[in-house]
Design a binder for these strands. Structure first.
Length: 387
DNA sequence: AAGCTAGACAACCGCGTTCCG
DNA sequence: TCGGAACGCGGTTGTCTAGCT
């Protein structure tokens, strides 16, 4: 990376800003407006990088910034947007007047992530840790018991380090195990050698494992298809988690507590043959959370309140087909991303299903995570097709 | 009182994208 | 069309402070 010319000078000042420096920025902006930040240090008489000036103005000096703490409404909106968008802080911040992306990011990292973790919810995927574990176990089976904890996301790692038992944590119990989730001192400790390897055969076997054992590998799309199928199947066999603060947010309503989140999973090809499913790459695009209200099925219990036109203009392909939905006599309330259920096993359809939009849309984030995992962890498999 | 720990948030860094000559 | 500069974003680090031992 080539350092910008304005930052090349050795005498560029770093660190916290003084009131005098702030005053210079304010005076400059009030006179010249924003823009051409590289010229600001010189014109304003500052020994700062232009980039640093812009950041100071954007994150601190802008007159329209809110200084008070986040409201519960803002909290909920952040969580819902994060579930739909992932860590697109600038886009999320656009929906919160007076808040900067840095504000939102810091608030997420220091408060909300921990809060979700204490609720037993993975802040990355917005799914219960138990379900993430189960999903990961299914995919991790392809590793032939070579899975390492190091490939899990941070919060899952912490949950392992603190609560090593593989059984799904119940939310109320899990709370005590997820303190200090975001503390980087803990992260550094966790990264220390010697504690990273996880016991072999940690994750449960699955039909995917069996198929992979015979096939040896799956192509990437097939693996994504498998993940999606597993995820969606798991959604309907997971746990009921109802946050007292966000009672509508993380509600996976189900009627069969005996159903393991991993038991109904199967390899994509097998499942597709069995259920007549057909996936394409479009199935894995982020789209649902941004559909206008009238594109969602009636009766859907969770409609994003933000304006879809303002965010994520990408990935809007194929709305005319993706807007399909199902609402049958089994009281299935799902969003349009769950159309694959149309041919799903009757054993899945036997459950009463309520999947919030955040749960469904967070699938994409989980998918991307797992895809990255696969690229790194399964590199040898992807390079060694069995066909 | 001193040292330590953790929370909060400001600021920096690196990278990708966009703009412009 | 190309290359450099500027901009924007997300992840990470630094610093301050309050609370605890």
């Amino acid at each position: 990376m080539v350092r910008p010319p304005c930052c090349d000078k050795l005498n560029v000042k770093k660190g916290l800003w003084t009131e005098e420096e702030d005053a210079k920025i304010l005076a400059y902006v009030s006179k010249h407006g924003t823009g051409n930040w590289t010229a600001v240090p010189k014109k304003a008489g500052l020994r700062r990088c232009g980039k640093s000036c812009r950041l100071r103005w954007t994150n601190y000096l802008r007159p329209d910034l809110k200084r008070e703490s986040f409201t519960p409404q803002e909290e909920e909106l952040i969580i819902r947007l994060h579930a739909a968008l992932g860590s697109r802080w600038s886009i999320i911040a656009q929906q919160l007047p007076g808040r900067t992306d840095n504000d939102v990011k810091n608030y997420w990292n220091t408060k909300l992530r921990k809060k979700l973790s204490e609720m037993g919810i993975d802040p990355v995927t917005h799914k219960p840790f138990s379900q993430v574990l189960a999903d990961y176990g299914n995919i991790g089976g392809l590793l032939k018991s070579r899975t390492r904890i190091g490939s899990l996301n941070r919060d899952m790692k912490n949950s392992f380090m603190i609560k090593p038992e593989p059984h799904p944590p119940q939310p109320a119990i899990a709370a005590e195990g997820f303190s200090n989730i975001n503390n980087r001192r803990v992260m550094k400790t966790m990264a220390s050698p010697g504690i990273e390897p996880i016991q072999e055969n940690f994750f449960p076997s699955s039909n995917i494992n069996q198929h992979a054992a015979t096939c040896g590998s799956l192509d990437l799309l097939s693996q994504l298809q498998a993940i999606k199928l597993v995820t969606e199947a798991s959604n309907y066999g997971g746990y009921q988690i109802i946050s007292p603060q966000f009672p509508n947010q993380y509600t996976l309503s189900l009627s069969s507590p005996s159903s393991s989140s991993s038991t109904s999973s199967t390899c994509s090809t097998t499942a597709q043959e069995k259920a007549g499913l057909a996936f394409s790459w479009r199935d894995f695009l982020l789209e649902d959370a941004f559909l206008p209200y009238d594109h969602h099925p009636q009766g859907q219990d969770h409609i994003p309140e933000f304006e879809s036109k303002d965010i994520a203009p990408q990935n809007h392909s194929g709305n005319e087909t993706s807007a399909e939905h199902i609402e049958d006599d089994k009281n299935i309330i799902i969003n349009n991303n769950s159309r694959v259920l149309s041919g799903m096993d009757s054993e899945l359809l036997s459950y009463g299903i309520q999947a919030s939009s955040s749960t469904e849309s967070s699938f994409v984030a989980a998918m991307l995570d797992q895809e990255n995992e696969m690229f790194s962890e399964f590199a040898n498999l992807l390079e060694d097709p069995c066909y």
